[in-house]
């Protein structure tokens, strides 16, 4: 079974839990005492990942680190539909790669701001917040134009990709970093759509979708 070196409040670990839940891949969570123990910086953990980062997966002896790289691996290996990582479609795979790089930006701004606020990381909070707003503005416009074309996700096609999945936690937890989503209506609608993907699981700080009651108008 896949082992995930995991921390409950880490967005990058959550991305892996989310994808494995959606793809119905069983895994074992190995808790890493990220805070207050800083176990990921320990010599013992650096034998697993010399960079001292989580998440790391161990898939039957195959070790991989870096959150977005793990998403690529898991989708390529465990999504029989080939939709989450659309390797057979040059245009969609190009877009997926592009938005995955964009998600590195949201991680380094929105999620970095969250670490500043929650755990007093020594980053420039205002620069992180300003950077996140710049990226959210771009993503909001992009999603707005997508909606006009009847498309729900960041890449072309009718199915979400790991690019949506890589972006979602950074966006939906942004308020913990003091980044309001008030001005990004298309972004907010996209987060609501994402929550309704079958197999979606929340993490602390993210609400599951509101239950649709029988007979309710929507």
């Amino acid at each position: 079974m896949i082992k995930l070196y995991d921390y409950v409040l880490s967005v990058n670990c959550y991305k892996q839990r989310l994808l494995m839940s959606i793809l119905d891949v069983p895994y074992e969570s190995i808790p890493v005492d990220f805070y207050p123990g800083w176990e990921h910086k320990s010599e013992a953990f650096k034998k697993i990942n010399p960079l001292g980062h989580i998440p790391v997966i161990d898939d039957d002896g195959y070790i991989l680190w870096d959150a977005h790289a793990i998403l690529v691996y898991l989708a390529a290996k465990y999504d029989p539909s080939g939709q989450w990582y659309p390797a057979g479609d040059p245009e969609r795979i190009g877009e997926t790669a592009s938005w995955m790089l964009f998600a590195e930006g949201t991680t380094n701004t929105a999620s970095a701001a969250r670490l500043c606020v929650n755990l007093e990381y020594d980053f420039d909070l205002e620069a992180c917040q300003a950077g996140a707003h710049r990226l959210f503005r771009v993503l909001d416009e992009h999603l707005w134009f997508r909606e006009r074309q009847g498309l729900d996700w960041v890449c072309s096609g009718a199915h979400p990709t790991i690019a949506d999945l890589a972006l979602f936690p950074d966006v939906v937890l942004s308020e913990e970093g003091g980044i309001s989503r008030m001005d990004y209506p298309a972004l907010r609608r996209w987060t609501d759509r994402f929550r309704r993907i079958p197999g979606f699981v929340p993490m602390p700080g993210i609400f599951p979708p509101a239950a649709v009651k029988a007979g309710s108008p929507d």
Binding site: V8, L9, D33, Y35, E176, P204, G205, I206, F207
Partner: peptide, 17 residues
């Protein structure tokens, strides 16, 4: 202690939004 901390941190983070 790790188990208790994970429990409490989970509860705390659920309150944030």
């Amino acid at each position: 202690i790790g188990h208790i901390r994970r429990f409490v941190q989970t509860i705390f983070a659920q309150d944030l939004p």
